[in-house]
Simulated scan of single mutants.
Amino acid sequence: MTAPHIEVLPDKAALVERALTLSVQLIQDAIAQRGRCTLALAGGSTPKPLYEALAQTNLPWSFLHIFWGDERYVPIDHPDSNAGMAKTAWLERVPIPPQQIHPVPTAAGDPAADAHQYEQSLRSVFPDADVPTFDLIFLGMGDDGHTASLFPHTEALQVRDRLVTVGHKDGQPRITFTVPLINQARTVLFLVAGANKQHALSQVFAEEGDAQMFPSRLIHSQSLWWLLDHGAGQALLPR
């Protein structure tokens, strides 16, 4: 297993700047090598300034396919929608063809049915792959160690026979990529900010630990990056 790349940046602004540089390079490389770039986005407050910065770059937008690694079970115009946030911050401000933006469906009134529909959407873009290989998946991490909507001690952590499943937080359904789909990615990029993440990070990077309690331990992609601000990552710095 390849060791992860771990970088501790001075503050959140530096984290976003580093993430922008790395993301632009990965997007450009994917298009040069494979003729397109497939991305899965994260929600939350940490990636929003990255999306706003990406909106200011000059990329070959027509070659991007955009998905989401997870979504709250709310309409896209709801303030909690991951897709709604990304569209406002980035996607509505650049000329990505609309048919290449693939938000998670949340309108069926049945999360399992919408999860199945999203898996079919994935397979339409990756028709020849049993488990699709994304070029880049953005992830965050909560202070409980969850990532995407893979929460501690939930059934979603065990799913290995699907690409998309239903996660739960406090009794509320969410739709999420499964562990095998995330781990198939060429690159996974974690963006983690805040001192409240220190304990979870110490458990994620411990030599031995409980992945059911700290699900981010389950993520092992071909190339795994952790970009941390100083508040989150200071405990990992050499003494």
Score class of each variant (00 low, 15 high):
Glu92Asp: 13
Glu92Arg: 13
Arg93Thr: 08
Pro97Gln: 13
Gln99Leu: 12
Ile101Met: 13
Pro103Arg: 07
Val104Ile: 08
Ala107Pro: 01
Ala107Thr: 08
Ala108Ile: 06
Gly109Asp: 05
Asp110Arg: 15
Pro111Ala: 01
Ala112Phe: 10
Asp114Met: 01
Asp114Tyr: 00
Ala115Glu: 04
His116Glu: 15
Gln117Leu: 06
Glu119Cys: 05
Gln120Asn: 09
Gln120Gly: 02
Ser121Tyr: 13
Leu122Phe: 03
Val125Lys: 03
Pro127Arg: 00
Asp130Ile: 08
Thr133Asp: 11
Thr133Gln: 12
Phe134Arg: 12
Leu136Gly: 00
Leu139Ile: 06
Met141Leu: 05
Met141Ala: 04
Asp143His: 06
Asp143Tyr: 06
Asp144Met: 08
Gly145Val: 02
Gly145Ser: 02
Gly145Ala: 03
His146Ile: 05
Thr154Phe: 02
Thr154Arg: 02
Glu155Leu: 13
Glu155Ser: 15
Gln158Gly: 12
Val159Lys: 09
Arg160Thr: 14
Asp161Trp: 13
Val164Asn: 04
His168Ile: 09
Lys169Arg: 15
Asp170Gln: 12
Gln172Arg: 15
Thr178His: 09
Ile182Ser: 07
Ile182Met: 11
Asn183Ile: 02
Gln184Met: 12
Ala185Lys: 07
Val188Arg: 14
Val188Gln: 11
Leu189Lys: 02
Phe190Leu: 05
Phe190His: 05
Phe190Tyr: 09
Leu191Tyr: 02
